[in-house]
Computed example of a mutant assay.
Amino acid sequence: MGDEHRHAGSPRRQELTRAIYREARTVATRQALADQAVAAKLGINGTDLLCLGVLDHAGPVTAGRLAELTGLTTGAVTGIADRLEQAGFAHRVKAPEDRRKVIIHPESAQRERTGALYAPLLDALDDWCASHTPEELETVLDYLRSFSDSLPLLTERLRQREE
């Protein structure tokens, strides 16, 4: 790529930047729709699945911390924890340092059940990755991490404006 393509203000760079953003939004929308379908297959709702994803990423957390991470109220998280526990996706344990607090733990069966539903997506990703060089995959991974890292900052900024 020549220097004219590296300049932040070049029309081609602006066009590509906008196209990347549009594709990222399309991916996010399609992921949300797929997640709704997965949640329905699992017999839970989309917010419950979202919380399972947070638990999978963050590990066991208190109900209060799950509320912070999701922007939900502690009352809503209590209802979610009830439903997840009843459906076999999580269990609650009293915090050893403060018995008034509850730690929500994801069940390993949850990963297996949800993983099986996402398997076709992972198979398609494996196929796509097999046709690209490690360097190309590193570029894609770098982009995804950068975009992912910017989303919590946006979320926090938007939540602060609500107060």
Rank of each mutant, 00 (worst) to 15 (best):
G2E: 14
G2K: 11
D3H: 15
D3E: 15
E4W: 11
E4V: 15
H7D: 15
H7V: 15
A8I: 14
A8P: 11
S10R: 06
R12K: 12
R13G: 02
Q14D: 03
E15G: 02
L16E: 09
R18I: 09
Y21F: 13
R22N: 10
R22S: 09
E23P: 00
A24V: 06
T26K: 10
T26V: 10
A28G: 06
T29A: 13
R30E: 14
Q31F: 08
L33N: 11
Q36W: 07
A37T: 09
V38R: 03
A39F: 06
K41C: 08
L42W: 05
L42D: 08
G43W: 01
I44S: 04
N45Q: 12
N45T: 09
D48R: 10
L49C: 04
L50Q: 11
C51L: 15
L52I: 08
V54Y: 02
V54P: 00
L55K: 04
L55V: 03
L55A: 05
D56C: 08
H57L: 11
H57D: 11
H57R: 13
V61F: 00
V61K: 13
A63E: 10
R65N: 03
T70S: 12
T70K: 07
G71Y: 03
G71H: 08
T74K: 13
G75N: 13
V77E: 05
T78S: 13
G79M: 03
I80V: 15
R83K: 11
L84W: 09
E85A: 14
E85N: 14
G88C: 12
G88Q: 12
R92W: 01
V93K: 13
K94R: 15
A95R: 11
R100V: 00
P106I: 09
E107H: 13
A109G: 11
R111Y: 15
R111Q: 13
R113H: 08
R113L: 12
T114N: 08
G115K: 06
L117C: 03
L121Q: 12
L121I: 09
D126C: 02
C129P: 00
C129N: 10
A130T: 06
A130I: 01
H132R: 15
T133I: 05
T133C: 03
P134M: 08
E135A: 15
L137N: 06
L137Q: 12
L141W: 04
L141H: 05
Y143V: 07
L144W: 04
R145Q: 08
S146K: 01
F147I: 01
S148T: 10
S150E: 07
S150V: 11
S150P: 00
P152F: 01
L153Y: 01
R159C: 03
Q160K: 10
Q160A: 13
R161T: 04
R161D: 01
R161H: 00
E162A: 09
E163I: 03
E163A: 07
